[in-house]
Amino acid sequence: MKKYDKLVRDRIPEIIKADGKECVTKVVPIEERAELLERKLMEEVNEYLEDKNLEELADVMEVLFGLAKNLGYSEEELIEKRNEKLEARGGFKEGIVLLEVK
Rank of each mutant, 00 (worst) to 15 (best):
Met1Pro: 04
Met1Arg: 10
Tyr4Glu: 08
Tyr4Cys: 04
Tyr4Arg: 10
Leu7Asn: 07
Leu7Tyr: 12
Arg9Glu: 07
Arg9Phe: 08
Asp10Ile: 06
Arg11Tyr: 11
Pro13Phe: 08
Pro13Val: 07
Glu14Trp: 03
Glu14Met: 09
Glu14Lys: 13
Glu14Arg: 09
Ile16Leu: 13
Asp19Ile: 00
Gly20Asn: 10
Lys21Glu: 12
Glu22Thr: 14
Cys23Lys: 07
Val24Ile: 14
Val24Ser: 11
Thr25Ile: 15
Thr25Trp: 14
Lys26Gln: 13
Lys26His: 08
Lys26Gly: 00
Val27Trp: 09
Val27Arg: 13
Val27Phe: 12
Val27Leu: 14
Ile30Pro: 00
Glu32Ser: 10
Glu32Met: 13
Glu32Tyr: 08
Arg33Trp: 03
Arg33Gly: 00
Arg33Asp: 00
Ala34Leu: 15
Glu35Cys: 04
Leu36Gly: 01
Leu37Trp: 11
Leu37Met: 07
Glu38Lys: 15
Lys40Gln: 14
Lys40Met: 07
Leu41Asn: 03
Met42Glu: 13
Glu43Phe: 06
Glu43Val: 04
Glu44Met: 02
Val45Asn: 03
Asn46His: 07
Glu47Lys: 01
Tyr48Val: 01
Tyr48Gly: 01
Leu49Glu: 14
Leu49Ala: 02
Leu49Cys: 08
Glu50Ala: 10
Asp51Ala: 09
Asp51His: 14
Lys52Trp: 02
Lys52Gly: 00
Lys52Leu: 09
Leu54Lys: 11
Leu54Pro: 00
Leu54His: 05
Glu55Leu: 07
Glu55Met: 03
Leu57Tyr: 06
Ala58Val: 07
Asp59Cys: 05
Asp59Thr: 04
Asp59Tyr: 05
Val60His: 01
Val60Leu: 02
Met61Phe: 13
Glu62Cys: 04
Leu64Asp: 01
Phe65Gly: 01
Gly66Arg: 08
Gly66His: 07
Gly66Phe: 08
Leu67Ser: 04
Lys69Ala: 14
Gly72Gln: 12
Glu75Ser: 12
Glu75Asn: 14
Glu75Phe: 02
Glu76Tyr: 05
Glu77Gly: 01
Leu78Arg: 03
Ile79Ser: 02
Glu80His: 13
Glu80Met: 11
Glu80Leu: 12
Lys81Gly: 01
Arg82Tyr: 14
Glu84Lys: 08
Lys85His: 05
Lys85Val: 03
Lys85Pro: 01
Leu86Glu: 10
Leu86Ser: 06
Glu87Ile: 11
Glu87Asn: 11
Glu87Ser: 12
Glu87Thr: 10
Glu87Lys: 15
Gly90His: 05
Gly90Phe: 06
Gly91Thr: 06
Phe92Thr: 04
Lys93Ser: 12
Lys93Ile: 05
Glu94His: 13
Gly95Met: 05
Gly95Thr: 03
Gly95Asn: 04
Gly95Ser: 04
Gly95Cys: 05
Ile96Arg: 13
Ile96Asn: 03
Ile96Ala: 06
Ile96Gly: 01
Val97Tyr: 12
Val97Asn: 05
Leu98His: 04
Glu100Ile: 00
Val101Met: 13
Val101Lys: 15
Val101Gln: 12
Val101Phe: 13
Val101Arg: 14
Val101Leu: 14
Lys102Gly: 04
Lys102Met: 07
Lys102Ser: 09
Lys102Ile: 08
Lys102Tyr: 10
